[in-house]
Design a protein around this nucleic acid. Structure first.
Lengths: 166, 166
DNA sequence: AAAATATGTCAATAAAGCTGACATATCCTG
DNA sequence: CAGGATATGTCAGCTTTATTGACATATTTT
């Protein structure tokens, strides 16, 4: 995981104008803020029409991505409390986007799955985001995807070179 | 801007297991989600100790970065309403982190500045984020900074190649 | 003087999170 | 089998951050 030549340059920060705190990388901090704000705005518009919020988005997304997830898995992934999840999950189940199945081994568990409509919903939400990513990558140039993946992965807590998180 | 050989591969998405929606770039969607979640968790811890929230962070940050900003500027940047800003701004002023000065030209305006304490606060909040970014960039490899900047910039709405936003 | 603008503020509402407490069903252990 | 642990559900109340609507004040522009 460190196969490239060491870059010994002292983090030449390239601070934006107007401030000289030095060291602090305000440029990328702000870029991330705006990128994420707009990235999230695409699905927000769709969600609003259906009377849902971001919380619903996250739940549908992860259940769709990992079918058979348990409630506990979802809580772990989203890092929210059971009570917070409950309201949102209930609405999604009532709306017919997600259904539950008692665990085959452990019947206390509720395994979660997206319904056909849930899959379509998840897809509809992801599409504009994917489109935005593709456009940004294309504009950035070839090879951008790999670099961006590595960078974003490195921003995640618990990705400290040593690899396996959790 | 395109000095390298064209990459004609059809966006081979590299979808993660468990789903085959094709086309959708779930990998980067999720990477962004986790990256941002953890990126924001660093300052969150500091804010909590002082009884502030993310909203305060954003306000202190932008005022610190662009001294003399008006309230209208801030509303535009944050894309929130005046009433939402009011409470947060008031608390920051009362806490001595931000102060207002009537505009020299237009005295209806309130130009916003961080106090000495406000600057220190902004710096304290930005530091762990900057550190995280530096670590992620270093791990990604040389040249990552440029690529990441371009990508993140491209994710922002209204950055459609033509360049100058606003 | 009147209209427009920049800001402030009151009140009510909503979304999404939280804590605490407790109920149920199920599994595991002694 | 009894009792404890676990997975989930649910009730009640609270907090933060955002919203809309209405209106007040000061100032600038027309």
């Amino acid at each position: 995981m460190a196969g490239q030549p060491k870059d010994t340059r002292p983090e030449l920060a390239a601070i934006a104008p107007g401030n000289d705190d030095g060291v602090i990388d305000y440029e990328i901090i702000e870029l991330l803020f705006f990128a994420y704000r707009d990235f999230i705005s695409d699905p927000d518009a769709i969600l609003e029409r259906r009377g849902f919020g971001r919380a619903h988005h996250r739940v549908v997304h992860f259940v769709d991505r990992e079918p058979g997830m348990t409630v506990a898995d979802l809580l772990e992934t989203l890092k929210i409390t059971k009570q917070s999840l409950a309201r949102v999950l209930k609405q999604l189940i009532d709306s017919g986007y997600i259904h539950q199945v008692a665990g085959p081994e452990d019947r206390r568990q509720r395994k979660l799955y997206t319904t056909r409509e849930g899959k379509a919903f998840a897809h509809a939400l992801a599409e504009p985001q994917s489109r935005r990513i593709a456009a940004a990558l294309a504009k950035t140039g070839p090879g951008a995807r790999e670099t961006v993946k590595r960078f974003l992965g490195g921003m995640k807590t618990g990705s400290d070179t040593s690899g396996t998180d959790r």
